[in-house]
Amino acid sequence: MLFLNTRPADRAIPLTEFLQAQDIEVLDLPLLELAPMPWSDHLAHLYAALPSAHVVVAVSPSAVQYGMQGLAQAGLSLEHLSHLTWIAVGEATAKALLQYGIHSQVPEVETSEGMLNLPVLQQLPESSSVAFWRGEGGRQFMMDSLQAKGVKLLNFILYQRQCPEQAPKIIEKNISRLQLQQRYCMLVSSEASWLNWRKLMAEHIDLLNRAHFLVLGERLCQLLAQDRLRHHFTFSISQLPDLRKESILEHIALVQGNS
């Protein structure tokens, strides 16, 4: 069974190599790429307020990379932030922070809901301030939930998401290969990547319906289920608890066993 690895190009290789070693046929098809936001007075103001925050939530390794670049541009050192609690959305983000000597808390489930369940966020007083290092459009649910509790937010939009230029070219090159598949597996790890795939498949609804989507987290899984119902799609969905290579392999094996 063909597996479409939709992780960004710089994060796709370990998963692709792992699955290929297990004799899984893989097509690398990144559906998201990141570009840094230009420096602005608004970002400068946010960095100036950062030492007064209580918690920093880093949503990706890229958020760590661009966030640290912003710290340097703002003339801040990590010593100014030594009192802060750091939260990483997953192990990859935690490793990125650790490269700067920062130990972070990581939720058991790598989703907004998982992070909201961390005790440090559950126990925040109303007057607390939480900084989000994130990309454009990311983690809105988590931010809205905290704001509803009276928590002050410092919203660092550090990068923007876009569909890679090579994505339609990869599809065009492999369209015959895809059409030969009675069924294929595909990773969906964000709403943005799902929306990009929907656009790319607008003229190939039959191919869209042949997919078994491995979807990260309950909220994203519900989004796909709602789209399926609304548009009368017939694709299948499985919910992933995390993005570990072993979890993805286990779910591919389940799909293969049911085919």
Rank of each mutant, 00 (worst) to 15 (best):
M1A: 05
L2S: 06
L4I: 15
R11V: 07
A12L: 03
I13L: 15
T16V: 14
E17L: 12
F18A: 05
F18H: 10
L19Q: 06
Q20S: 10
E25D: 15
D28K: 11
L29D: 00
P30M: 12
P30D: 12
P30R: 10
L32M: 13
A35C: 08
M37W: 08
W39S: 10
D41Y: 05
L46P: 01
A48R: 15
A48M: 11
P51K: 09
P51A: 12
A53E: 07
H54C: 08
V56F: 09
V59K: 04
V59P: 01
V59D: 03
S60G: 03
P61F: 08
S62G: 13
A63M: 04
V64G: 05
Q65M: 12
G70T: 10
G70W: 02
G70F: 11
L71Y: 05
L71R: 09
A72Q: 15
A72S: 13
A74F: 01
L78M: 14
E79G: 12
W86T: 06
V89H: 03
A94G: 04
A94W: 03
K95R: 13
L97G: 01
L97W: 05
L98K: 09
Q99I: 02
V106D: 00
V106T: 08
P107N: 04
T111V: 12
G114C: 07
M115Q: 11
N117S: 11
N117R: 10
P119N: 06
V120H: 04
Q122R: 13
Q123H: 10
L124P: 04
P125G: 02
S127G: 15
S127K: 15
S128T: 05
S128C: 02
S129M: 04
V130E: 01
A131H: 00
F132H: 03
F132S: 02
W133L: 08
E136P: 01
R139H: 09
F141Q: 05
V151A: 06
V151H: 06
L153C: 03
L153G: 02
F156E: 02
F156G: 00
L158C: 03
Q160H: 14
R161K: 10
Q162H: 13
C163K: 13
Q166L: 13
I170G: 03
I170P: 00
I170R: 03
I170F: 04
I171N: 08
E172A: 12
S176E: 14
L178F: 01
L178W: 07
Q182I: 08
Q182E: 15
R183V: 02
Y184F: 15
M186S: 13
M186R: 11
S189V: 07
E191Y: 09
E191R: 15
A192V: 11
A192T: 13
A192H: 09
S193D: 10
L195P: 12
N196H: 15
R198A: 11
R198L: 12
L200Q: 07
I205T: 15
L207Y: 09
H212G: 04
F213E: 04
L216E: 03
E218Q: 14
E218M: 12
R219W: 11
L220H: 09
C221V: 00
C221I: 00
Q226V: 12
D227T: 06
D227P: 04
R228P: 06
R230W: 14
H231T: 06
F233T: 10
L240W: 02
P241G: 03
E250W: 07
A253K: 14
A253D: 10
V255Q: 02
Q256M: 12
Q256G: 06
Q256L: 09
G257E: 07
G257T: 07
N258G: 08
S259P: 08
